[in-house]
């Protein structure tokens, strides 16, 4: 009993030391442990820098390796995490590829890691375009976030970077600390903090080479998509009338297209707040591509109150609704309440 108490005290002391080190900014450059509230806030960077950061995501040719880390769920002690390194390349003209290099945490059998790599490969388009931090629209972003320089100069993958903080205005529930290569404006490191100031996710380049990828490099190939006509229900194009959400406050609609996936025809609407994307997908009652595809089991698609299944993964919330034979999917870094409000505005 006494031994257990002693160990508990020792753990508490070690925890206090770690906290002190954290507060003093201790740790390596890659180990992001300082709470965002303690960051010095310099004046916002000029628009030219923000525009350059926005353009660099797809406009800079490079190849490199980076490590990503995600807090998962939280667990009892908040120590569950997923971490892996990946090889990324971009030709500076919109073509890119991402390949898993190594699954760091959890350590699994090589065959499991290979399957995970295959899954990641199949989602590289999402990863490059929507998972990774990027400024999508400077004007919109400045309406949704407060941006400051932190005054810190960081060295990431041997490159000198300036650090900026992006804090979401609504609810102030998320802060990004972003290290930007001074020479190329490419984002080389990102730390995402939640409302409690806990690190939720991070990305750090381990090495980077600014040059056009080799001639034989393979790039991501998009699924075929057809652009939808704005402000119409696109009945002729989809085969069903698109029910657009009317309430997506704080987000701009930037992309709307028809995609065929999972045996159904989908209308995919992509919104963003300048940084974070938000998805709304609708597949209508007659949106089946084949007779075999059907609604998820256990849900009556034609009667009763609309059924919504809500799930969370990291900072993301997703809602999947079946109603009157239609399927709706909404995903964003927003709360469940906001997602359901958007869904209701589409169903009304």
């Amino acid at each position: 009993m006494r031994l257990a108490t002693g160990m508990r005290l020792a753990c508490a002391a070690l925890g206090s030391c770690a906290l002190l080190l954290t507060a003093c900014g201790g740790g390596s450059s890659g180990g992001a442990t300082s709470a965002p509230q303690q960051i010095v806030q310099l004046p916002p960077p000029p628009a030219s820098i923000l525009n350059a950061i926005a353009a660099a995501h797809e406009g800079v040719a490079y190849s490199g390796r980076r490590t990503l880390w995600y807090r998962v769920g939280g667990g009892k002690s908040g120590t569950q995490a997923l971490s892996y390194s990946e090889d990324v390349l971009s030709d500076g003209a919109g073509r890119f590829a991402i390949d898993l290099h190594d699954l760091v945490v959890p350590v699994v059998h090589p065959s499991e890691e290979d399957v995970f790599g295959l899954l990641q490969k199949s989602r590289e388009g999402f990863a490059f375009r929507f998972r990774d931090f990027r400024i999508r629209d400077v004007t919109r972003m400045l309406q949704s976030y407060t941006v400051h320089g932190t005054g810190q100069v960081k060295t990431v993958a041997g490159r000198v970077c300036a650090q900026y903080s992006f804090q979401k205005l609504a609810l102030q529930d998320r802060t990004y600390l972003v290290s930007v290569d001074n020479a190329t404006s490419l984002v080389l490191a990102v730390e995402e903090y939640d409302r409690q100031g806990r690190l939720a996710a991070s990305m750090t380049f381990d090495r980077i080479l600014y040059a056009a990828p080799a001639a034989g490099s393979g790039y991501h190939t998009d699924l075929p998509a057809t652009a939808l006509v704005p402000n119409t229900d696109n009945h002729a194009l989809l085969g069903f009338p698109l029910r657009r959400p009317t309430l997506v406050s704080g987000y701009d609609l930037v992309q709307q297209e028809r995609i065929d996936a999972g045996g159904r025809v989908w209308a995919r609407l992509v919104y963003h707040d300048g940084i974070e994307p938000l998805f709304f997908l609708h597949s209508g009652r007659v949106g089946h591509l084949s007779a075999t595809s059907s609604a998820p089991a256990g849900i009556d698609p034609l009667a009763g109150v609309p059924t919504v299944r809500v799930s969370r993964a990291g900072s993301w919330t997703i809602a999947h609704c079946t109603h009157a034979g239609s399927e709706y999917v909404l995903a964003g870094k927003v709360g469940e309440r906001e997602l359901l409000a958007i869904l209701r505005s589409a169903l009304h």
Partner: peptide, 16 residues
């Protein structure tokens, strides 16, 4: 979730 929702969440969340 439906297959589309699962695919979307897997891609956006980095594989969580």
């Amino acid at each position: 979730l439906g297959p589309m929702a699962a695919l979307l969440l897997g891609g956006l969340s980095g594989g969580i």
